[in-house]
Structures are given as C-alpha cells and as structure tokens.
Design a protein around this nucleic acid. Structure first.
Length: 449
RNA sequence: GUGCAUGUAGCUCAAUUGGUUAGAGCACUGGCCUGUGGAGUCAGUGGUUGCGGGUUCAAGUCCCGUCAUGCACCCCA
C-alpha cells in the first residue's frame, strides 16, 4: 500500500483513465437512447436546500436521517447544514420543474441527468459515498404507456451495454399512499401477538419501516409472512388495471419481466409502478437501477399536483457488470502516431509536425526530450502507437522522413511532405478525430460524442 | 450505526509459525545493441513491514489501541 500522507476520502474513488473508458461508453449509451426518446439533459446543482430532500425523500428514511452530507458555512445565516449534497436526482429535478414553470411546456416533460450523487454510508461492494447515476424523469402525465416507454429506454440502454442478460426486471404496483397506509396497519395488526416469533431486527422494522418486512432475509419472518395480508389485497381496481395494462405493454415491447409482489421501494414518494433491475445471481443487494411512479412528489415540493415517473441507474454497478461479463469499451485514447527525433534541427521540425498532425485529427504523441532513439522507440511501443515517424539529422539534411508501421515492424523513407498524406491514407480519413471544426477538406465533420 | 476479515516495494505475493542485513515476479532505469520498440540476458533504483504503544534477549510474525481497506448486516444505485 502506498504510504502517501493523503488518500482519497472514505468511500470515494479516483476515476482513473481506464475507468473513464467505461464511463464515457456508458454515458454515450445513455445520451444516445435519451436523445432518441426525446429526453433533454438537465443538471440540477450538486447541493440543494436540505428541505428539498427531506420533504421529497421522506424525513424518516435512512437516506435523510443518516446518509445526507451536509454543506454550508459555519457562522453564516445559512449555517453549516443549510444544504445537503444530492443523494439522488429526482427531488432536485422536480424542484427545478416547479421553479422554471415547466408545467407550461408540452407535457409530459422528459428530462435526464448524469452525475455524482452522495450518501454518507459505510462503503462496500457497489456502494460508495460518491457514486454516479444516470436518471430519467417523465413529468406531467400519468399513463401506463409512459411507464412502459421509460422502462423500455432503460432496457435498451442495458441491452446496448450487453449486460441485460445478467439482470432481471422486477416489477410491482404498490398502489397509493392511502392503500399502503391501510395495508401497513393491517400488517401491524396481523403481527400483534406474534412479535415474540419475530427476530429482533424485524420487530424494530415493524415499527420503523413495516413494508421492509416483506423482503426480510430472516427465515422466521418469511414463514410468518406466508399467512399475512398482502399488499395487492389493498389495491384499488384502478391500480390493478393500471398494472395489468402496463404488463400488457411490456409484453408487446418484448421486455421480459418478473412480477414481484414483495418489491417495495425505500423512498416515500413512490406510488403505483415500481421496478428494479436485479442481479440474476445475487438479487436485490446489487440492484443496478430502479425507479417508479411518484404522482404526489411535485405537490409535496410546493408545485401544482403533477404526476411523474422516473428511473435511476448506478453507473459503478453497471461498470462492475460489464467487467464481469467481459464487455470491453473501445479505447478512444489510442495513439495513432508517435514522433521520434534526434538532434536540435529535427526537434524543431518535429515540434511543428506534431502540431500539424494533431490539427488534422491524429492522436499524436511526440518524444521531444533528449532521450536516445532507442528509448523513444520503446516509448512508442508502450503507447501502442500504430505508426511512428522518425526524423534525425540525416533526414533533415535530405528532406526526408521515416515512416514505420509499428505492428508490422516495417519502415520506409519518403519525402518529408509525403508523410502526412500517406498517414491519412493509412489511418483513414473517417478515423481522424476532429471536433466540429472545418477539416482539411473544408467540410464539417460530426463531433461524435 | 453493528459484526467479521485483512494491512509487507508502484502492482501481485513470499519470509521455515518469534531468530542474522525483509525476498521474488511484474513494472521502472540502464548495459549487451555508437540512429530503431516488442523477445532474451545481465545489472540497478525502489521498504520506518499502515501508524502508536506493549510483551520479549529478540517482533513483519504475539497482545492492546488507532487508522485504512474489503465483505456482510442495516439501508440503497
């Protein structure tokens, strides 16, 4: 282990170059599918007034009670815990929806976000204090077809990333807040006199978070639950119909799902549809993403009653699955040309050459130090450069340059001016990396990512 | 917040159960090869054994504390 004085704080990670290959690949898939479906990007601030989360997520959830990172400034009016780092996107996006009068836009409003979220928590596998999410929200209308479309977008993304086979889509309908209130009461009534048979942990849970009993890992609890009332007994006909219609739509879209009557969500604002993508082998602990409908949230935050449905995916968890599945994102940092030089004249000429190469869109690395040609070539090898250009005193004198194909190990000498056109031919114009600038043919190229 | 496990070189790991100066592979730098990478070979750089205390003639090894990391619980993406 490194003995440096400082290290990244608990639960945070440096996103190293090799991680960014995955990150950019995932973000690209998200953006691509989002644009196809008409979603617009929004970036709410990384911190909000505490109350946005407290009211939105629910005061007595763990996320708000103990996982919120406070920010602020001691001694000022706001105080040191006036704000909190966002633990998720939904509450902030809904706040923005209200603040910017988005109910005036054509409904539903489709928004997506990508970025870090923060929860003060003991880190473990797939759970970090700073983590990245992508998030979709469809606000303004309530209809099973919108739920189905949202699920479809997320489904396509996970398919693009080649990990959908490792996951199962779990889906349930948890009715309205009133339905759940009645149900929770019934559940509590059922357990009266049975507390003694409940494990200690679940006895506490019965008081604080009764719905969580449903997915308890305790065997004794699960046995007791077999005769307990179930949530769907308390759903209105309307909810049942909504759910049935959604399932029909999913089938029409060819999306495989598993109905899971025990699926509940931790956040208070959900109603009706809830869904999660679970790891096929390990189950809920490693949920890659989840979402659901939140028809009362906007009103809770002070807006006009406006329904919504959303999804959040955990990028680190997706990354983990991709690595497990052996999905390798393309390396966009590939070095096309390595420029080696010997002697002061050559060095000067190479400095200009490197600049030209880069402007043309070649990924170019130049060894402009004083190192021997040998060590320069070793560098070219380490960079896995496809081609190397060699310019020494002799070449400068003759007006030539050596072009070497690194993989083939073959090289040829040519007129200095011939080198660029030759390289363009070898790499292929379409592979040159230019960004919305006039390229050498005077045409606009696609910025890509 | 609770429990269990683990901390030795940049990385992966050794060190005969407490015994000389803590080793190896990979990586890095250089030589063999005066202007040409990958393979081979030889050499070199790199350590307060996480930190602090204790037991002992003697601690990388045992004990206590602390910090960090990993995993599980709680909870969640």
């Amino acid at each position: 282990m490194s003995q440096s004085e400082f290290r990244s704080p608990k639960g945070t990670h440096d996103k190293l170059p090799q991680d960014h290959q995955y990150m950019t690949y995932i973000k690209k898939a998200v953006r691509h599918r989002a644009r196809q479906a008409g979603f617009k990007r929004i970036d709410p601030p990384m911190f909000e007034e505490r109350a946005v989360f407290e009211r939105g997520i629910g005061n007595h959830t763990d996320i708000v009670e103990k996982e919120l990172f406070s920010v602020g400034r001691k001694g000022t009016e706001e105080g040191s815990d006036a704000y909190a780092l966002r633990p998720e996107f939904t509450a902030g996006i809904c706040r923005a929806f209200i603040q910017h009068g988005m109910q005036e836009l054509p409904q539903p409003v489709e928004l997506y976000a990508i970025g870090s979220c923060f929860r003060y928590d003991r880190p473990q596998k797939g759970r970090y204090r700073e983590f990245n999410q992508f998030d979709f929200e469809v606000i303004g209308l309530s209809d099973p077809s919108l739920d189905a479309q949202l699920i479809n977008v997320t489904y396509q993304i996970l398919k693009d990333l080649q990990i959908i086979d490792r996951l199962t889509l779990q889906i349930n309908n948890i009715g309205t807040a009133e339905n759940r209130k009645e149900y929770v009461q019934a559940l509590k009534d059922y357990f009266i006199g049975k507390e003694r048979n409940l494990p200690e942990l679940d006895r506490a849970r019965l008081q604080t978070n009764p719905l969580r009993l449903l997915d308890s890992k305790e065997e004794d609890t699960q046995i007791l639950l077999k005769r307990a009332p179930t949530l769907d007994q308390f759903l209105s006909d309307e909810s049942k119909k909504y759910h049935a219609t959604l399932l029909e739509y999913l089938e029409a879209l060819g999306i495989a799902y598993i109905e899971n009557p025990l699926l509940v969500r931790g956040l208070d604002y959900y109603n009706q549809t809830v869904f999660e993508y679970w790891d096929q082998s390990t189950g809920a602990q490693n949920a890659v993403g989840g979402g659901g409908r939140y028809d009362s949230l906007i009103e809770l935050l002070g807006g006009k009653p406006t329904p919504g449905v959303g999804f959040a995916g955990g990028i680190e968890r997706i990354m983990w699955h991709m690595k497990e599945a052996g999905v390798a994102p393309p390396d966009k940092d590939q070095v096309d040309v390595f420029v080696a030089q010997l002697g002061p004249e050559a060095k000067k000429k190479c400095l200009v050459l490197v600049n030209e190469l880069r402007n043309l869109g070649f990924h170019t690395v130049g060894a402009l130090g004083e190192a021997s040609l040998k060590s320069q070539m070793r560098l070219a090898d380490r960079f896995q450069a496809r081609y190397a250009l060699l310019l020494g005193q002799m070449e400068v004198k003759e007006g030539t340059i050596i072009l070497k194909d690194m993989a083939a190990g073959k090289q040829k000498s040519m007129k200095f001016e011939k080198a660029l056109p030759e390289l363009i031919k070898l790499i292929g114009e379409e592979n040159l990396d230019t960004y919305a600038i006039r390229d050498h043919l005077g045409e606009f190229s696609d910025p890509g990512e």
